[in-house]
Nucleic acid binder design. Structure first.
Length: 156
DNA sequence: GCCAACGTTGGC
DNA sequence: GCCAACGTTGGC
């Protein structure tokens, strides 16, 4: 299995929304590289860090699991949707999405600022200059390191 | 195929 | 709101 990091602006769709839904389509990805990761490499059972972008502060809010492999993103066909793309049709869908299931919400947000503090994470795709992919791979070590941070008892 | 102009992302 | 870094579009 593989590990991922998926970004969402919490004002649009936060980890709390996924918790409420339990499972949902990961719609609205309109970047080819991010689409390709979903279409070609994501498998059911893969785990993803759920990242809140454009937030105060930005950071990893929890974990989701891929629960359905890539299928056409039908929001691209809906003229009323903010994700509408007239170049995508049911006959020739341009955009794909997976479905994800809620796994857990961290008891504390692991902020971007904190992530930058750890040498163990300095190779993370998220932390590279200019990196802004909304679906990106993470290593097992990175994933587990961050999950462990979230699960650690808080020391004073 | 080049590349200028424009649009988006996302931290700050 | 600013702006750096990317990505896309479209004329040529």
């Amino acid at each position: 299995m593989r590990y991922w990091l998926i970004k969402s602006e919490p004002t649009t769709y936060a980890i709390d929304d996924l918790e409420r839904m339990q499972q949902d389509h990961w719609e609205g990805v309109r970047n080819y590289q991010a689409r390709n990761y979903m279409r070609d490499e994501m498998e059911v059972g893969d785990l993803a860090l759920f990242y809140h972008s454009n937030a105060t502060p930005p950071g990893v809010a929890g974990i989701a699991r891929v629960c359905e492999e890539a299928h056409p993103d039908f929001t691209a066909w809906d003229p009323e949707s903010k994700y509408f793309d007239p170049k995508s049709t049911p006959e020739n869908p341009r955009w794909m999405m997976v479905s994800v299931a809620f796994v857990e919400k961290f008891s504390r947000l692991i902020s971007l600022e904190e992530l930058r503090d750890y040498p163990e994470l300095k190779e993370m795709v998220l932390l590279q200059k200019g990196s802004r992919l909304s679906v990106q791979p993470a290593t097992q070590k990175e994933f587990e390191f961050i999950r462990n941070l979230a699960h650690e008892a808080v020391h004073s």
